[in-house]
């Protein structure tokens, strides 16, 4: 990095801005997809895929959280509503966790910026962690409450 020492702060900012500009088509594409998902996947559609079985619901909650996109706050509101509708806490926990840590929509961008192998490994680990954390959280709560 010795060559980079002579680059001024504004020069570095300019380089960083260009990096973001290069990524803009991908960012805009992801935003477009997020808009479509938020418009076409409704709360009712999400609730209809749960059946009350803990294993099934945890898995489906994780998958639904992966697909559903938006601000984390929305996942809490949706999760709370799903809980009120009788969806298990396993599913809701997995859903809320997967919402923030996993994302099908942003996979192409993650792979393009951080590499396919890294993306594959990270998402696989995050997927199993989400299931594990959800199950342990609810099991411990059942013992505690």
């Amino acid at each position: 990095m010795s060559g980079e020492k002579s680059v001024s702060f504004s020069g570095n900012l300019k380089q960083a801005a260009f990096s973001i500009l290069y990524m803009m088509p991908m960012i805009l594409a992801i935003i477009g997809l997020v808009g479509l998902f938020q418009s076409y996947i409704t709360e009712e559609m999400l609730a209809s895929v749960f059946n009350g079985n803990a294993v099934h619901d945890t898995l489906v909650g994780t998958l639904a959280g992966m697909v559903a996109v938006g601000q984390a706050i929305v996942s809490y509101i949706l999760g709370g509503e799903l809980l009120k509708e009788g969806v298990s806490l396993y599913a809701v926990t997995a859903f809320v966790l997967a919402w923030v840590t996993l994302g099908v929509v942003q996979l192409p961008m993650e792979a393009s910026v951080l590499g396919i192998r890294f993306t594959w490994r990270r998402n696989l680990l995050a997927f199993f962690s989400t299931i594990l954390v959800s199950v342990i959280t609810v099991k411990l709560l059942e013992l505690w409450r």
Binding site: Y22, P25, M26, I27, A29, G32, L33, L36, P108, S112
Partner: peptide, 16 residues
Amino acid sequence: SRWMGVRLLALVLLLY
């Protein structure tokens, strides 16, 4: 990465 983004953006625009 940029070309992948351009292709994906084009696809999303086509979808819209």
